[in-house]
């Protein structure tokens, strides 16, 4: 791209990106700067001034308020969400592509239909089901519906990549005497590592950020996840604006680390939804 007029400065693009840089950077820099100063400092020097001295008291305060516990719960929801989704979706995608069973193709059509169901629109009956199962205020209450609403897209993406596996490879394994299960384990799995990574990142980010299901299902502080924890920080921190911002900053840290060390996966996982 941009081969068109290489060398000539593009003022319009320059202006647009400069404005966008300000739009992105001012909130993020303010957030970081607020979280590193004291409340008094912030009130004395105003929201845009850099901290006059750097303090880590907000970090200690956030930790005291159960941040570690929220983080642990979020990790459980994210990890279990990914694991359960893959456990269900990989065999399903395999069946979609390879099975001749009518049930498999019918299920696939139902999954496609499911792409259009907005999870938010059915929280009332999901609430009914989960409370009747006695799962209210457990992490499972968040994990199970999150996985269910991820399945259609994940099966779609996985089956798309499974189609690229040549039939000859399966035939070859047949000669070896392999059954359907062994083909899944030793052929399909290794060959779809890329798309499995993609969907894992996608599902993981979704679970990491989930808010609605935790909001209606999780009540006790021991069960709350990060997003809810941040919400309760708003109350608990009272007028301590820097404390709140430290919470926001810390909540992004794990994803930031992932971004630093596995940027390609993260971008692929995100862009994977929109098509490459």
């Amino acid at each position: 791209m941009s081969t068109g007029a290489r060398g000539r400065p593009n003022w319009l693009a320059g202006a647009l990106t400069a404005v966008w840089l300000i739009v992105i950077a001012v909130p993020i820099l303010s957030m970081i700067s607020w979280s590193l100063q004291s409340q008094q400092d912030l009130l004395d020097h105003g929201p845009l001034a850099p901290p006059s001295s750097i303090t880590f008291e907000n970090f200690a305060a956030v930790m005291d308020m159960g941040f570690g516990r929220y983080m642990r719960n979020t990790l459980i929801v994210t990890g279990a969400g990914i694991a359960l989704t893959l456990l269900l979706a990989i065999p399903a995608a395999y069946a979609v592509v390879r099975s001749r069973s009518l049930l498999a193709s019918a299920s696939f059509r139902v999954f496609l239909l499911g792409l259009a169901i907005p999870a938010q629109a059915v929280i009332i009956p999901v609430y009914l089901i989960i409370t009747r199962m006695g799962l209210n205020d457990t992490l499972a209450a968040v994990i199970l519906p999150t996985v269910a609403f991820n399945l259609p897209l994940v099966v779609l993406i996985l089956s798309g990549s499974l189609r690229d596996i040549s039939g000859e490879l399966y035939d070859a394994m047949t000669v070896d005497g392999a059954g359907a299960l062994r083909m899944l384990v030793s052929l399909v799995l290794p060959l779809s590592r890329g798309s499995i990574t993609t969907v894992s990142v996608f599902v993981g980010l979704g679970a990491w950020n989930s808010f609605i299901f935790p909001l209606i299902f999780l009540h006790s502080p021991e069960k709350k996840v990060l997003t809810l924890g941040l919400q309760s920080f708003r109350q608990e921190f009272g007028i301590n604006l820097p404390g709140m911002m430290m919470g926001v900053l810390l909540s992004a840290l794990p994803v930031f680390v992932l971004y630093l060390f596995a940027r390609r996966w993260l971008v692929a996982g995100l862009a994977g939804v929109g098509g490459k």
Partner: peptide, 15 residues
């Protein structure tokens, strides 16, 4: 992933 899966089982059990 194994650890995370174990966590989920724990959560279910806790329920």
């Amino acid at each position: 992933l194994t650890l995370a899966g174990g966590g989920a089982a724990f959560a279910l059990f806790g329920a």
